[in-house]
Design a protein around this nucleic acid. Structure first.
Lengths: 251, 251
DNA sequence: TCAAAAGTGTTCTCGATACACCCATGA
DNA sequence: TCATGGGTGTATCGAGAACACTTTTGA
């Protein structure tokens, strides 16, 4: 076994492999790896985040983001899905890698690196079936202080979400399969924390190809029955490497 | 010592600490951690990337991004700076965390996770003093195929850079302290790989507060001496959490 | 018949685009 | 004096912002 850069312990070591000339790592003395997930939900005209109450030290009794430690053969994205499935009973969510947090003192137990993800979910899809009874939705503006560095992670996620929905049809993941134009409008106003002219918003969305009319109407309300739309999942995204649409969804 | 989630090896373990009730990690059997850096340089109207030729297996003889393994107490951002300083003799560059790459087979030696950064540099600042003689600039459109998953990392970085310079005054880091409007114009055309009307670009930049006139002129050319500008480093960034200016720098 | 929300249309303005022209310099 | 790039001005067009009116529904 050989440690490179003598005098400064590195996060790897090499073993010579006899079969071929490619050496291989011996996994040894590396920081712990974790995934933390900012789960955003939208319901009742409110953007919320799902938090777990810790029942172990450190930060026992504090609210934190759900997370897990990475499996030795596992990918971060899979660990993220595992958090959602195991701890929250959620499947098939929109998820995106956010940022990697590595402040050495972020976990008092020792060096732990967290690759943060965020997920978008329509909470009505998962009203029952939490595996963990300690999970609770908090409106983003009324959330408690979080343990670890999770306040920073959350803030980064919210900032990313705000920037994202302007250029990418991710926001639709927060709504039901069918939704009215007013519901979509309120969602954008809520996430961006601003007001948008209702009529200009409608025209902008309809002129784009993000949304398809269904001919159905939402009934049972006290007023005129609004038309129901659905997200156009066959939309071809243009722009930088197919990652972005041609222009902003709204301004 | 106790391994949680028995039957599925996790990337951490806990030791009870007797002094208080906070357990601590024993660093053990975790994937190797590395930092890889996409160094962008702009010179002679060309955007280039700095690559290193490997003289060890795996990928011996192939070009790769410069990188290092993370020190046990080191932060990724510091490791990134260490790459630039130690391997390339560069200091004080604009750097930004890009993405974390974790494909299990990305390194044939074993599980290795790479947190990728990109850096912007004016190559003329570092024409001499490479610590490594195997470093070479390649125009981004004439680069060779890279070892490991570094083609994917590079592509992600270029995509990010293109999106970034539209909304954030990062591009200035690629130019000299003083630059002409034409040089700035050519930089944007080069990175975005498009043509921009020279006169509209000038007005847009001057109407913004990204650039300050110096009263100096670039002399020694064969034509009219163009005015020199400098980047306005006291610019207050507005928008989402101070991360973004009010609107796009150009469209 | 009335309140409340949904749906449609019009005007105005500002910024982006597409241009043409003059100026300064060294060869 | 001329080629070359630098600097300035202007007309046009379209998208976005501001805003008013009609329609549908249940109470």
């Amino acid at each position: 076994m050989k440690i490179f850069f003598a005098g400064n312990v590195k996060c790897f070591s090499l073993r010579q492999n006899n079969a071929n000339k490619v050496p291989s790592f011996s996994s040894y003395k590396n920081p712990s790896l974790a995934v933390d997930v900012v789960v955003f939900g939208y319901n009742d005209r409110t953007l919320s985040v799902l938090l777990l109450k810790r029942n172990e030290e450190p930060f026992k009794g504090k609210w934190t983001l759900p997370g897990v430690f990475l499996g030795m053969e596992e990918r971060f994205g899979d660990a993220c899905s595992r958090v959602l499935r195991t701890k929250l009973g959620m499947d098939d969510l929109y998820t995106e890698q956010l940022y990697t947090f590595d402040e050495p003192s972020r976990d008092p137990r020792g060096r732990a690196i967290s690759v943060a993800y965020y997920a978008l979910v329509n909470p009505q899809r998962f009203t029952t079936g939490h595996k963990s009874g300690d999970a609770e939705w908090f409106p983003v503006h009324k959330r408690p202080f979080l343990g670890f560095d999770h306040d920073e992670i959350f803030t980064t996620a919210l900032q990313r979400l705000k920037a994202k929905i302007l250029y990418h049809p991710a926001g639709f993941e927060l709504l039901d399969e069918l939704f009215t134009m007013t519901e979509l409008h309120e969602l954008f106003e809520c996430i961006l924390d601003t007001t948008i002219d209702r009529r200009n918003f409608r025209r902008k969305i309809l002129d784009s190809e993000y949304v398809l009319p269904t001919g159905l109407k939402r009934e049972g309300l006290q007023n005129r029955h609004p038309e129901l739309y659905k997200f156009n999942r066959r939309l071809k995204l243009k722009g930088a490497g197919g990652a972005l649409p041609e222009g902003p969804i709204i301004n």
